[in-house]
Design a protein around this nucleic acid. Structure first.
Lengths: 142, 142
DNA sequence: CTACGGTCTGTAGCGACTACAGGGTCAAGA
DNA sequence: TCTTGACCCTGTAGTCGCTACAGACCGTAG
């Protein structure tokens, strides 16, 4: 086992294990500026502290809610500025909520059609396949 | 105006206009083998006929239903084989339907949380932002 | 004859990762 | 002490489904 003394800072695998985030993803977030570059040991290893982990958790949680990395950048910016960010944050979330609802609506349309064609196919012994026929027949959007 | 005589075959822009599909997308579908390479005029221009257009519409319709290009490839393969493909097609659609339902479930979870935090934020005049606080607090998946 | 639109090819970009390759570091076991 | 093997480092290329060029060619209307 490697050094896990918190006084010395966490290494990548430890942070990854604690947050459930892929190592490569942590590095990617640092590269695109979502997470600060952590200090390094003399041999060049990254050394994380709890503030890094806290910020990573914020990013991961926001990803779970479907925010894009750009949106998360904006949210983190609000966090860092600390000037009553609630209105702006609320605005970002409200826009994102609209996006989520639009995606749900799209998927529900797909679900509806798929459910119907699967049902029409029955046990799959038909010579003409209703699914394939319907794909040839209809085009929803012009 | 360019040649639109159907006897001479359609050019790309014409097919694109008739199907609502981007020109570059048609070319992309040809490149990845979803659509056959159409015959060319002496000067190298692509010349489409109605079977090309029919196949393109099939692809576009399947995309509207959320099928991946790989899935569409499989569906087209079933179409071309013509050996009572209904059972296999039904299977592909059923799997895809599961995926769609899983995505809907994910998005509904997001929607629920977002709706709540946006409501909690109220008019955005709060000093502590419930959205930002909740992003720091919770991590759903480990 | 020239201007302007279409078409051609090939390549690079997007977002959000993920997966290497090819090397360095470090601690534990023989 | 030496080796083994697990971890870390950097950089790059791949994924999916397009989209957007660049730089060239073609073809027709004025």
């Amino acid at each position: 086992m490697r050094d896990q003394n918190p006084a010395k800072g966490l290494q990548r695998a430890e942070v990854a294990r604690r947050t459930g985030c892929n190592l490569e993803t942590v590095r990617y977030y640092e590269k695109v500026g979502l997470l600060p570059e952590p200090p390094r040991t003399t041999s060049g290893y990254r050394s994380y502290d709890t503030t890094h982990e806290r910020r990573l958790r914020f990013v991961l949680r926001a990803r779970e809610l479907g925010f894009s990395l750009d949106e998360i950048r904006a949210l983190l910016c609000l966090v860092d500025e600390r000037n009553q960010p609630c209105a702006e944050a609320r605005g970002l979330a409200a826009i994102h909520l609209q996006d989520v609802r639009a995606k749900i609506a799209d998927l529900r349309r797909m679900e509806h059609v798929l459910k119907d064609v699967v049902a029409e196919c029955g046990d799959g012994t038909r010579l003409d396949c209703p699914l394939i026929e319907s794909l040839f027949r209809e085009t929803a959007v012009e």
